[in-house]
Structure formats: C-alpha cells, structure tokens
C-alpha cells in the first residue's frame, strides 16, 4: 500500500540521473547563505547580552544559533536526497522529467511542442561543470527544468531537443 502511494515508485522507466556535482554546488550555495545568516545571528544574539539577563540572553543565543545550524544541516541532507530525485528520459517522441522531494512531479513534453530550450549555469554551477536545461512550449505552465545536467551533456541535450523539436514540429 505504501508503495503505490508514492508517485515515483509507480514508474518503470530508466531515468538518467543528474550530476552528483549538483549536491556539491547546492551545499556550497547553502554554505554561503547560511554562513551569512549564521554571522548575522551571532552578532544579533551577542547584542542581546548587553540588555537581557544572562539566562534569557543565553537562551536566545542557543535557540537562534541551533535553529540556523539545524536548517543548515537539513539543507545538507536535502541537497543529496533532492539530487537523487531528479531524472529524465529521452523517449522516441517525448522527453520525461521527474524531480522534487516534498512536492514530486513528473512532466512529459512531446518533442514537437518544444519552442526553445534554455541552458543556464551560474558561477558555482559552471565551476563544478553542470547546467540547468529548461524546455519551453507555447504553454507557460510547462515548467520542465532539469537542474544539474553535466555541461557537455546539457549542450548535447539542447542540440538534440532542438533537432527533435524541428523534426516533430506541430501543435500550434
């Protein structure tokens, strides 16, 4: 019963996984963000020691710092699990993309419906050698983004999708 409740467990396809560097990249991004938040929290809770009794100032410090560290740890674990949830399949006629952990989704885009394909990589992503590939159709609701595709593979995928899109063109 528990098996069939989960969307992903009902799928038989062999999914191409995304780059494991995505985990590293997201942990770095998290490290930068949480580093800033951590320092700000340290400064803020240090301030409370000047006008709160020691007990309350200590409590504020412990609670706020452990909250930040807790979220940081959670994002560390999340990065790996989320990366594992992503995958795509290039079938004969369609591209299938799955991904997401808390909110799971599977999207299928027929090649012929593709309007254009975007490849994007920020500084961390390009350093680590991966990029995100986004498929766009005439419907803006189509949100088929694959994060963390290895850069070479991303460009191959884009070229292939564009090529397939042109040969299957229809639907407008």
């Amino acid at each position: 019963m528990a098996k069939s409740k989960d969307l992903y467990s009902t799928m038989a396809e062999t999914w191409t996984p995304v780059s494991s560097q995505l985990v590293t990249g997201r942990r770095w991004t998290a490290a930068i963000w949480f580093g800033v938040v951590f320092l700000a929290t340290v400064a803020g809770s240090a301030g409370t020691w000047f006008f709160l009794p020691t007990f309350w100032a200590g409590l504020v410090t412990v609670v706020s710092l452990s909250a930040v560290v807790g979220l940081w740890v959670w994002s560390w674990i999340w990065a790996a699990r989320n990366q594992a949830s992503w995958g795509y399949v290039e079938s004969d006629e369609e591209l299938l993309v799955r991904g997401g952990l808390l909110f799971r989704r599977v999207i299928v885009v027929p090649y012929g419906r593709m309007q254009f394909v975007d490849v994007a990589a920020g500084p961390i992503a390009s350093k680590l050698g991966y990029a995100s590939v986004t498929l766009n159709t005439a419907a803006t609701a189509t949100a088929a983004t694959i994060p963390g595709v290895p850069t070479l593979e991303a460009h191959r995928l884009r070229d292939r999708l564009t090529e397939l899109g042109a040969s299957h063109d229809s639907g407008l």
Binding site: K5, R104, A138, A141, A144, L172
Partner: peptide, 14 residues
C-alpha cells in the same frame, strides 16, 4: 493543442 502533461504530488497528498 496539448503542450505537455504533468502529474504532481505534495506531501499531504502522498
């Protein structure tokens, strides 16, 4: 005219 199809599942739905 259909452009793409998506199924999704939120935590409560799961």
């Amino acid at each position: 005219k259909v452009q793409s199809v998506q199924v999704s599942q939120g935590p409560l739905q799961r």
